[in-house]
Amino acid sequence: MTEVATSPLSTLSAQGVSVWLDDLSRERINSGNLQDLIDTRDVVGVTTNPTIFAAALANGEAYTDQVRELAAAGTDDAAVEKAVFEITTADVSAAADVFAPVAERTGGEDGKVSIEVDPRLARDTDGTIAMAKQLWERIGKNNVHIKIPATVEGLPAITAAIAEGISVNVTLIFTLERYRHVVEAYLAGLEKAKEKGLDLSSIHSVASIFISRVDTEIDKRLDEIGTPAAKELRGKGGLANCRLAYQIYEELFATPRWRALADAGANKQRPLWASTGVKDPSYPDTMYVTQLVAPNVVNTMPEKTLQAFNDHGSIEGPTVIDTYAESDAVLDALAATGISYNEVMDELEEEGLKKFVDSWTELLATVQDELVKHAGEAR
């Protein structure tokens, strides 16, 4: 009997890690590349953000026909906002169709496509809730996640969205305390949805915990300190943070509060490892995949990381469970060197929001330029 070769990505999936792609463009959908990644790379979901959309608009011709038609409505700010909404929701809707068989096969757990609320609303609870509803209703497909940033103002928006039966990808999570609050916001939303008589089994959520950005900032500070003890901690902060988040996940989804919701059909909110592209070339390019293997998590990867792992990634079993004491020791050691965990994470949240807003502004400018260029061509 001939043994069937198993790819690293298939092995990863068998360990309970859902492989999602962190990239989306109309060209990727129309060319069949997205379907090919599902068929050959075990990809079962896709995430996107303003940066990805801005790059797709700036670098492809796949949007020209739609832009030409949208240009008939004008080129002022209101028209540009509407055009961005129409373009991004069209891409997500088309991708959701591609992933529909995956969603059916996995009972809705995977096959998800994420679209982000306008990041300029990150500090506006009511505005976030309103746009989450608008995106959900406009796309109208169950295998979509609405991305809401895990700001303090975003927490009640998460609860409100879940309470309406909207599946949510909570993004830009950095601190363990904030992650705990995110899970609690999700549980509160499920409880409200249950009170309304909604079908809890149709509501899904992931909590996106960022990794490489954490190491980039901590490593910079460790290099400035420059001691042997500091250098020994390089590349350990991001992994420790994620592993301790998984410990919180295990804790909060084993409580009587959760069991009551599970008995009513609710799904666990899965941890999602985000920002998994390695930025320091001295580290293995698959580090944030190999070192974060655990049951019932998602790893969303840029295509470069996805292909690298499929080429030479290795799995030696779970690499999260039973690491909690070691991970605590890493955070304690960082504090002992003079690095403030909360200061680093607060800075990363503000920096992350600024990057998303800057990319959204770039997206608006790109679309406006395209509308102006094609203003006289609408049919």
Rank of each mutant, 00 (worst) to 15 (best):
V4A: 08
N30A: 06
N33L: 14
T40H: 10
D42T: 15
T47N: 05
N49V: 14
N49P: 13
A55K: 15
A56C: 08
N59F: 03
E69S: 00
T75K: 01
D77P: 01
A78K: 10
A83K: 11
T106D: 07
G111M: 14
K112I: 06
E116N: 07
P119F: 08
P119I: 07
R120C: 07
L121S: 11
D124T: 10
W136N: 02
E137K: 08
R138G: 03
A150K: 04
T151E: 03
T159N: 02
R178H: 09
Y186C: 14
Y186M: 13
E191I: 05
A193L: 12
A193F: 13
L198W: 02
L200D: 09
S208M: 03
I209L: 14
S212Y: 00
D215S: 06
D223E: 03
T227M: 03
P228R: 00
A229Q: 09
A229F: 06
E232L: 00
G238P: 11
N241D: 14
R257T: 13
R259G: 07
A260H: 01
A260L: 01
D263W: 03
G265S: 14
K268L: 05
Q269V: 04
R270S: 13
W273Q: 09
G277P: 14
V278M: 08
Y288D: 09
Y288V: 05
V289G: 05
Q291V: 05
P295L: 00
K304G: 13
K304V: 15
A308D: 01
H312W: 06
G313Y: 13
I315M: 11
P318E: 12
T319K: 01
E326G: 13
L331I: 07
A335M: 12
A336I: 08
T337S: 15
N342Q: 15
V344G: 05
D346N: 12
E347W: 04
E347V: 05
L348N: 14
E351A: 13
A365Q: 07
V367S: 01
V372C: 00
V372W: 01
K373F: 01
